[in-house]
Design a protein around this nucleic acid. Structure first.
Lengths: 346, 346
DNA sequence: CTGTTAGCGCTTTCAA
DNA sequence: TTGAAAGCGCTAACAG
């Protein structure tokens, strides 16, 4: 309620005066790269700064240097464990590099995504990381690319997560391969009558997983007719609804593959509500290996993506700080994780 | 691999020149509050900006204006659904106000938290929101307060989430009351032999929930002796380990209350591993109502906190944009949610 | 090695 | 209304 006198923050100028040195010397002592400052001066400056509670104004520093220490991360939904895990990785790697992460959410909306990128450019971030799944053939797709290209043209770096984004650096996730392996594994376990709760048709990630799964089945001589594929939202409720829709057709089903774990959780619950027994008379598999799926019943079979590592990689890829002799960075391995939701079948 | 020519971003200067007006006019057309600009000029500027793909350099703007559009959010762990939900709320409200959110994680480490706050001050954010649970009597506690006070003294706003943080604005969560109500409700359902998997002793939130729960039991004439309280980490694994420890004592237990949902998930899994039947021969309850607990088996009884709303409120509280006639903002209601993990007993 | 002096990109008096 | 010019806090030549 009380309006404080609100004196403005200590400036470098104040510190310099307090220490009895010039602005330049103060600056050099506090940040300058080469230690070209007399130790006794340096100390006096540091003490003065300490005494005055000074912190460098990063904005001013950024303006003067023409480069910032900001990383912008775009996610579809930060409350979704897939994205929050990736974010954790990005933040971790970023703070190790002394970078600050700003997060914006796009809600899986191409228009909003474009708008957000534009807005974020105002921050002149060093890096923009896009983790939201790309929608194929979106009307905004091209403008987004243009925006990002021009961002790169002015010295920024962009990194995508998931499927290849052409001229931009990408942390590739082998959606197709992972799904293919999963399909093989499930056929190996004796499943034959599959259904897929697929994501929205225009979501690349979703589409790739569906394709890979279908390919894997085909290899094993198992067919996946279109009527056994239901497209639904990339969310828990999407999985739920999709499953109800599937069950309504009365088709006999051995195993339901949801193209991500969040959807798979919805699948399990819908199956149960319909009187089926997930992990019993019907198998369920997902994709991602978010933490939750270990704890639901039955524990979900899935394709594991090292989500935090993905985030870390994206950052390092963009900052060029990728360690070791890895040009183009080796693709992250996905890994099949069989759990109770897909027991061997008679 | 190719080092692009990296021309620098378009500046306001470029726009002004392109539009054939002065810097000042360009600035006013693009941002100025009062529309004191000739419409035809304004249009020319806007067009030029569009043509050149200009975006205001927020940093420079911040330096010139002496105020930023940044909100800093500190969380213990962004991958924890409790925090990611809050973050979602903060981001939502912030972007509605045209503010950008930067997130930093502290990993429940007081020292790191202090350090992070110091670092974040360099961004001169409008607001700092601290969502990590406060540890009581931490050696850093006082220095943190000092840091934050001085931040406020220089015009910043800080908001805490959870328990009262004295001079700072706080979105209060009624940990004690919620736990008390839960205790009552459980006694009402016929439970008598309680055990609590409590959090770390120095975590205020954890302690408050424990106290409230004990009070609620006491009111009903049910005792909660110290040996029935196990302190453990505020994580899933903490819940798991705490439960094993509890079971090892051989004490007969009706119901296990974990002071947060993440821990409760660990409790359920530990119980099951030990051959117990959560929701059957032993009840389980948590706190927070994170999305997951609806999907595990049995669905968890818990105390619901409107997490996203909490985040939103924190932001509005700090920016002073709190709508309506709510001085001090009404406390957020927690709500008991009974689910399958606590059926009526006997 | 230190201090002086231009900027960085933008806003905001202050005259015109 | 518009433009010129003086900053905002900091860095980076540039002399000294």
């Amino acid at each position: 309620m009380s309006a404080p006198a609100s004196k403005s923050p200590t400036t470098l100028h104040d510190v310099a005066r307090e220490a009895g040195v010039s602005l330049a010397t103060a600056s050099r002592s506090l940040n300058g790269s080469a230690r070209k400052v007399n130790e006794s001066y340096r100390l006096r400056v540091l003490e003065a700064a300490e005494r005055l509670g000074y912190t460098t104004n990063l904005f001013a520093q950024a303006v003067a240097k023409g480069s910032t220490t900001t990383v912008a991360l775009l996610v579809a939904d930060i409350a979704d464990p897939y994205f929050s895990s990736i974010a954790a990785g990005v933040i971790d790697a970023a703070s190790a590099e002394g970078l600050v992460v700003t997060i914006a959410v796009t809600g899986r909306d191409g228009g909003r995504e474009l708008e957000t990128v534009r807005a974020l450019r105002g921050q002149r971030p060093r890096v923009i990381i896009l983790a939201g799944s790309r929608t194929a053939g979106s009307p905004f797709e091209e403008r987004l690319r243009a925006e990002l290209s021009s961002f790169e043209a002015t010295g920024g770096k962009v990194a995508f997560i998931s499927q290849d984004a052409a001229p931009f650096a990408t942390v590739l996730l082998d959606n197709r391969g992972g799904a293919r392996d999963l399909a093989r594994g499930l056929v190996g376990r004796g499943y034959r009558r599959f259904a897929v709760i697929a994501g929205p048709q225009d979501l690349r990630t979703a589409q790739e997983r569906l394709d890979g799964f279908r390919d894997g089945l085909a290899e094993q001589g198992v067919d996946l007719p279109p009527e056994r594929i239901v497209h639904a939202d990339f969310t828990r409720d999407g999985g739920h609804r999709g499953t109800r829709e599937l069950l309504a057709t009365g088709m006999p089903v051995d195993l339901v593959f949801a193209v991500n774990d969040v959807m798979a959780v919805g699948v399990v619950s819908a199956l149960r509500e319909a009187g089926r027994d997930p992990g019993g008379d019907v198998g369920v598999a997902g994709y991602d290996d978010i933490p939750t799926v270990r704890d639901i019943t039955p524990a979900l079979t899935t394709v594991r993506i090292p989500l935090e590592e993905v985030g870390r990689r994206a950052l390092l890829l963009a900052t060029g700080a990728a360690t070791g002799a890895d040009p183009g960075s080796p693709p992250l391995r996905t890994e099949l994780v069989f759990r109770d939701s897909t027991p061997h079948r008679g």
